[in-house]
Structures are given as C-alpha cells and as structure tokens.
C-alpha cells in the first residue's frame, strides 16, 4: 500500500480507459454473448431464435461426441503435462549437478519455447509422416506400422509429443530455478548422514520442490487445455475418428464449421467455468512466494 499518492479525479480513469475499453469490448461483451447464446436456439437460416433454457447443455450431456471430447482432453492434458514435466525435471536435475556447463546446456534447452505450438505440430507431423517421415521408417524396421492418419492411438501420441515438446523448456526453467533455491546445507546434512545422491533427491529435493511442481502442474494443464488449439489444428484436425478432438478444437469446429452456435456457446460457457476454477486454484493454493 502506497503512503504517498496523487490526487486527481479524472486522470486515473483516463489511464485505465484503454485497458478497460478493450476488456469490455473484446472480453466481457463476447463472454456475455456466449452465455446468452447458450440458452438460445437459432434456426438454420438465422432468422429466428428461441429461448430453450438448458437444452443446449443437456444436449451436450447426452452427446457421445462431447463426452468423448472431454475424455480426449483429459488424456491429452494429463499426458502432455506428465511427459513435459518428467523430462524437464530430469534435465533440470542434471543441469543443477553440473557447474561449468550450466549456461551452455540452458541455452541449448530453452529455445523450443520460441517455436509456436502450431509450428511444433507441423514439425512433428513431418517427422512422423507415414510416407516420408523418418521415425515411421525406423519404427517399421522395429516391426511397428505407424500411421497417425488411421490409428487413433498413434494420432494421440503424436499430438502429445508435439504438445510436450513445446512445454519442456518452460518447465525446465522453473524446475531449475526451484532446484537452485533449495539450500545447500540441507543436502550437505543429508550427505553427512550417509544418504546417497538418489536418496537425497527423493527425500529432500523432491519434497522441497513441490510448490514448483504444483504450480507447473496447474499451469501446464491450463496450457494443454486452452492453448493447444494450434497443435491439434495444424496436425490431426481432431481426427482420426474424433480421437484428438479436444474441447477447444470442438468449440471452434462446432461454431465456425458446423455453424451450431447454441451448442458452441454452451461449450464455451463450460470451458469458462473450467478455466475459472483452475485460475482460482492457481491463485489461492499456490505458494506464490517461491524464491527464485
């Protein structure tokens, strides 16, 4: 709280005006529209709309496609998060051990952050391309017939790999910062008590890292759920057979391609509730004073 303030009646509003105007016009108004639309049904020509109450929602609840999309989203979000965080933690722990080469390795590991998820998707799509890709060729030698255009599981593995790849550097940087903020004295005390490196990592480092881990978990799940549109759209387009049709992709598809506005709006509202819940978790339960 500031003790020394400026007195002015109009100026603060002038300063806030651009931010508030954009928020109202492009955030709050559309959100309100989505909520309103979710209770309406528009006829095929958009000529008349009727109030249908919770019909759009109950329709979703009955739709096998939507339930499948929920499941696919959960699988995608959890796998991406676990894979990215697991790999990042191992890499961060290794970098933390080394003294002289820390900076060099960090530089070599942070750059995927710069590559857009959609571009990352295209790159992995190419590597795994069944006709010209490198990895299917290798897998073929091993006796596995890779085809993400037909096989649902292959498609999911592909988008998870692409999604996780884009997140590794982010997780790595936060894990490294977390590791470096753990006091050396604790590790040393454990070493004197005879704990080996793996034991120390397991019973000292990992518990002390838990605020970082929890934070990364929430952030990554939010990211996988809401900002992975590019990865999906640039690669599998939700297919084959809906197997990678995550919620945000479905909202877009139903709204723009399917022109089913009521359903798309209801899905938007559900997504808003999910992201609100996750934001509350993020702000309420996360120790925000992690020492970096």
């Amino acid at each position: 709280m500031k003790r020394s303030l400026f007195q002015h009646r109009l100026l603060p509003w002038v300063l806030l005006a651009p931010q508030l105007a954009i928020t109202l016009v492009f955030f709050l108004w559309p959100a309100a529209q989505a909520i309103r639309q979710s209770f309406l049904r528009e006829d095929a020509f958009g000529l008349s709309t009727t109030f249908v109450g919770l019909h759009n929602y109950s329709e979703l609840w009955r739709s096998a496609e939507y339930l499948n999309s929920l499941k696919v989203t959960a699988v995608f979000a959890i796998s991406t998060t676990v894979l990215a965080m697991g790999v990042a933690l191992v890499l961060a722990a290794c970098v933390d051990r080394l003294v002289r080469s820390q900076r060099a390795y960090t530089t070599l590991l942070v750059w995927p952050y710069a590559v857009a998820p959609a571009v990352a998707g295209i790159l992995w799509w190419f590597i795994f391309n069944p006709t010209v890709g490198v990895l299917p060729h290798v897998l073929d030698r091993l006796g596995y017939d890779w085809n993400h255009l037909l096989n649902s599981r292959d498609a999911m593995i592909l988008v998870v790999l692409a999604g996780a790849w884009s997140r590794i550097s982010y997780c790595f940087l936060f894990f490294l910062a977390g590791l470096q903020s753990i006091p050396q004295s604790l590790t040393e005390a454990a070493a004197i008590d005879g704990a080996g490196p793996f034991k120390r990592f397991w019973s000292i480092t990992l518990p002390l890292l838990s605020p970082t881990t929890f934070f990364l978990m929430v952030v990554n799940i939010v990211y996988a759920m809401f900002e992975s549109f590019g990865v999906i759209h640039a690669t599998t387009s939700g297919g084959p057979a809906q197997s990678t049709n995550i919620l945000v992709y479905k909202v877009w598809y139903d709204g723009f391609i399917g022109q089913n506005l009521g359903s798309s709006a209801a899905q938007s509202v559900i997504l808003m509730l999910i992201v609100t819940a996750l934001t509350v978790v993020q702000f309420r339960y996360i120790e925000r004073r992690v020492a970096y």
């Binding site: 928020t23 955030f27 559309p30 959100a31 723009f256 709006a265």
Partner: peptide
C-alpha cells in the same frame, strides 16, 4: 491513485485471465 470503484476496475482486468480467446471464439 485512490478513486471510487478502484477495486472494480482491478477485478475487471483480473477477469480477462479467465477468458482466453479459445473460450469465446464465436462472439
């Protein structure tokens, strides 16, 4: 500055965190 509805302005800005483009695409 201290001005009336200061907290309202602050919360209005905060709400944008919960409304990524992805959830309000069509409108």
């Amino acid at each position: 500055f201290r001005f009336p509805f200061r907290m309202l302005a602050f919360w209005t800005i905060f709400v944008t965190l919960m409304l990524p483009v992805e959830v309000r695409i069509v409108p």
